[in-house]
Amino acid sequence: MSDVLVRNSTLDLGDLTVRDVNRALKAAEDGAFTVTNPNGVHALACGLMQPISVTIKGHAGYYCAGMNQNADVLIEGNAGTGVAENMMSGRVRVTGDCSQSAAATAHGGLLVIEGDASARCGISLKGADIVVGGSVGHMSAFMAQAGRMVVLGDAGEALGDSIYEARLYVRGRVASLGADCIEKEMREEHIAEVKALLDQAGMDADPASFKRYGSARQLYTFKIDNIDAY
């Protein structure tokens, strides 16, 4: 399979199975590959480990680029549930919209969504960065532990519910904040942080126009007075 790949950097899902394509991509140590006819297949380009670049021409199903390490994956279309879930490093970019749980639990790397993201974007985020050109759905950044999420549009209900130490920046309207999530002061370092993330994502917006949200840290301990009684 990898021989085929060396000679031909286009992998056509019209002919190949998702297993063939994933195996070929995993075997490659560098280079640029194009995947055609994805037609919403699931688990495409997941578990990549090498610094290759992959362009997917069309819509991807669930868990596209899941657990990515080092690779640069571009989806020219929409992505299903859990795009870049648990990403460790590398970059994933979606030109269209994303379904639920984009970058769920991701530890590192950057996910850029040019369109909108549905519910639970950045759920349980553990250190990765997310930049969304459009809006994010309800319960986004639920229990987000670390990392940053920048939203150029609006955020749905219960943003940052039960959030830990992740930092959220939203330019538009926030429908409501979740439990223990509060608006925080936008200081110089935060403006610089947003600017850097926008630059990395190749998006144009005034960093000073964002508001910052994070944890009030009121849910970090059960009632401490009663610790002996637990």
Binding site: V18, N22, A43, C46, G47, G61, Y62, Y63, G66, M67
Partner: peptide
């Protein structure tokens, strides 16, 4: 689908 992803990885 999740199991499929885990197997692929």
């Amino acid at each position: 689908i999740k199991i499929q992803e885990l197997r692929e990885i």
